[in-house]
Every structure is written in structure tokens, then in C-alpha cells.
């Protein structure tokens, strides 16, 4: 999917994360802030990249502010931001690329 315009998903509350996606400059540029970056930084990055790959997003500036979200939450917030940037709100591909 193409990142057509900036979009935000998630919150800054504890155990959640806020994901912002914006049109990129030819690659994935990930800026991660996390309260548990030392413990789980690698794992969080991995989840974000995997989710973007599955959605076929390869050109985006992605900013994630993590407040200790679980993997499933991070994944859901990334998916939501990407679909919002495409103005897709209905008929989401549950069980397809979103699983």
C-alpha cells in the first residue's frame, strides 16, 4: 500500500503506542521512542517492519511513541494508521493482510 497522506493511530496512554505514518522518501524511515527501548527495542522494530511488509508498505516515514504496548497492540496501531492514510475505513481485509 502507498502512504498517501499523514495519519495517526493509537494513544500515549500506558500499554498503548501512538503510530504516525507519513509519505516517505523512497524507503521505510522508522523513528521509535519507547519507555522499554532497552528491553524490547529490537522486538518492537521487528513487529513494526513485519506489519509494514505484510501491508506491502515500503515507502513511509513512521514515528512510533511506545508506552509499553504488547506486540498485538503495536501491530494493530500500525495497521490502523496505514489504512487511515488511505482513507479506508470499511471492508478491511480481516483474515487477509490483517490477521
Amino acid at each position: 500500500m502507498e502512504i498517501k497522506k499523514p495519519a495517526v493511530a493509537g494513544t500515549l496512554e500506558s500499554s498503548d503506542c501512538m503510530v504516525t505514518v507519513e509519505p516517505g522518501q523512497g524507503e521505510i524511515e522508522l523513528d521509535l521512542d519507547s519507555v522499554v527501548i532497552r528491553q524490547y527495542g529490537k522486538q518492537i522494530r521487528k513487529i513494526i517492519h513485519e506489519t509494514l511488509d505484510r501491508l506491502d508498505v515500503n515507502n513511509a516515514k513512521v514515528t512510533v511513541v511506545d508506552k509499553g504496548a504488547l506486540d498485538c497492540t503495536i501491530k494493530a496501531r500500525v495497521e490502523c494508521a496505514v489504512y487511515r492514510s488511505n482513507d479506508i475505513r470499511d471492508n478491511l481485509p480481516w483474515g487477509g493482510v490483517i490477521r
Binding site: P6, A7, V8, T11, L12, E13, S14, M18, T20, K67
Partner: peptide, 13 residues
């Protein structure tokens, strides 16, 4: 404050 900031970021978005 986290909730307030979230609300303001959403509004700005």
C-alpha cells in the same frame, strides 16, 4: 496528561 496530549495530537491531526 498523556490522555490530554493524545487528544490534542488527534485534534491537530
Amino acid at each position: 496528561l498523556n490522555q490530554v496530549i493524545t487528544h490534542l495530537i488527534d485534534w491537530q491531526a
